[in-house]
Design a protein around this nucleic acid. Structure first.
Length: 253
DNA sequence: CCAGACGTTGTT
DNA sequence: GTCTGG
DNA sequence: CCAGACGTTGTT
DNA sequence: GTCTGG
């Protein structure tokens, strides 16, 4: 699963990293608590004119895919992930898988270890972890994007068209399975070109590009509970959690 | 034919 | 319990 | 993803 | 838009 992440790289760093020819005019600020419905950076390729070669762009999309046929944007915070196992068949995703793929760069994502998962939510405890590549390279997560026309806005309104995205999930790598059994799927740099190529529309071939990263390449560390609330957003969210020391026996006297 | 859904997670 | 907002 | 709200009437 | 259910 992937429902929260951190990305503190600048527009220029990302443009360089992904070889994007064009980037959004407005820079997004570093975000240590990216949540669904927020604006996020994404790399995608599109033809600027019919027949022209695709141009690689760094854009900002809204996280939470709204299918083009949606009557309203109400479900915008629901489709934040798409299961790899079913993405090629689901009506909400298969068109985007064939023609509108993107990469969502993240420094790392947050995952919550749930204690007491078999009990009611009120009796559970959640412990946040930050998951990233050992060595500090960003993860380029496999994403899909979609265009949606907001029917209540007039032609020419800059917000008339919504550009939204979802992140593909798969079975978790062994080294992080103790926290959660799902993870977002990173795309290896060697297949970025193919993944982004809008001319590749064979979904079997597309899915063949996605392989879990090498076992052991990911690492998770416990972070503080402050990340739970989206109101908190600063680099300290990434600091390793300091567990409360057990009270000394002597203090009981 | 038309109406209504179209998703994920986790839980059981 | 369930939905909305961030 | 988690946190936080979740409602009406009428009165001021 | 496209598929499923009735």
């Amino acid at each position: 699963m992937c429902g929260r992440y951190a990305l503190a790289r600048t527009r220029g760093q990302l443009q360089m990293e992904f070889g994007a020819e064009w980037a959004v005019p407005e820079e997004l600020t570093p975000d240590y608590n990216v949540a669904p419905t927020k604006r996020v950076y994404a790399v995608l390729e599109r033809r600027v004119a019919p027949g022209a070669p695709p141009r690689r762009e760094l854009r900002d999309l809204r996280w939470g895919l709204v299918p083009s046929w949606s009557k309203d944007s109400g479900g915008a915070a629901k489709m934040i992930n798409a299961r790899l196992e079913s993405v090629a068949e689901k009506p909400a995703f298969r068109g985007a898988l064939a023609r509108r793929r993107c990469l969502v760069p993240v420094d790392g994502y947050y995952e919550w270890l749930v204690e007491g998962a078999d009990r009611p939510r009120s009796q559970q405890r959640r412990h946040p972890y930050h998951v990233s590549f050992r060595g500090g390279r960003p993860l380029a997560l496999a994403g899909l994007y979609e265009l949606w026309r907001d029917p209540v806005r007039p032609d020419g309104d800059p917000d008339a068209w919504w550009r939204t995205c979802a992140i593909i999930t798969t079975e978790a790598n062994p080294e992080i399975r103790g926290i959660h059994h799902r993870m977002p799927m990173p795309v290896a740099p060697s297949v970025w070109d193919r993944w982004l190529d809008p001319a590749l529309t064979d979904t079997d071939e597309v899915l063949g590009l996605l392989r879990p990263p090498p076992e052991g390449s990911l690492a998770a560390h416990r972070v503080g509970d402050a990340v739970n609330s989206v109101r908190n957003n600063d680099p300290s969210l990434l600091r390793p959690h300091q567990p409360e020391p057990e009270p000394e026996e002597a203090q009981l006297f």
